[in-house]
Nucleic acid binder design. Structure first.
Lengths: 111, 111
DNA sequence: TTGACATATTCCGATATAGCAATATATTAA
DNA sequence: TTAATATATTGCTATATCGGAATATGTCAA
């Protein structure tokens, strides 16, 4: 068996940094393919392929307007990632608190 | 060029569902490799390989205790994923609000 | 030192990329 | 219809998996 397809879920789709770049860009507003190409400085076929992956997993939605295809983010599809990471939030907050306490203790020591 | 290595960052490492399973399991507490093998119902070499990937990107930390290796989550390494997804949080909350409002409007209509 | 237990590594094969180049499809304008 | 614009698809190649089987390494106990 090989690695799971990039289209198998949002986790896999989002692993590719260029696709996150595209999503970040689309977060601002709906854009055409060429706008993405210009902004990302990628080849057009590359952008189209990344958009296909993002669309397959529901991370973006597309609509045609004349010759252009306008893409926008479907934020709901990112939610599962957020929820999964949230289960670890308590852990890193706790860790940060401990780091802070140690720093303060050290500071107290050097007074 | 092929797909980025699973060890290139936390996003890629976490794209594999079994690795998320392992992290979920380790979130409860530090565990030995064999405990993970039993809990996940995976082959031992498979678990060891997944743990190596997770360790390479800093998602877990290991320490030896006798013959055993004990692994625990390093939650801080998950933070970047959380932060990235958070940038879209406003968008889906807004979307959910609109869905709710529409439902209420429909409900009002059918009174 | 030998054996047993715990974990890690290596070799294998099938598969799925990502970028690049070329080409195909779709839509509008002339 | 033809040309031009906008986007999508295909063929190619190098590479990195993943699981499974076999094996290697490491640690302790007798």
């Amino acid at each position: 068996m090989a690695r799971a397809a990039t289209t198998s879920d949002a986790f896999n789709a989002v692993a590719e940094p260029r696709r996150r770049d595209i999503l970040n860009y689309l977060a601002m507003q709906e854009r055409s393919v060429n706008q993405i190409v210009d902004a990302m400085e990628m080849e057009q076929p590359s952008v189209s392929k990344h958009l296909k992956v993002l669309k397959d997993v529901g991370l973006v939605e597309a609509r045609r307007e004349g010759r252009q295809m306008l893409y926008k983010v479907n934020a709901m599809a990112i939610r599962p990632l957020h929820e999964w990471t949230s289960t670890f939030e308590r852990m890193w907050k706790h860790q940060l608190l401990r780091i802070k306490e140690q720093a303060e203790a050290k500071n107290e020591e050097n007074k």
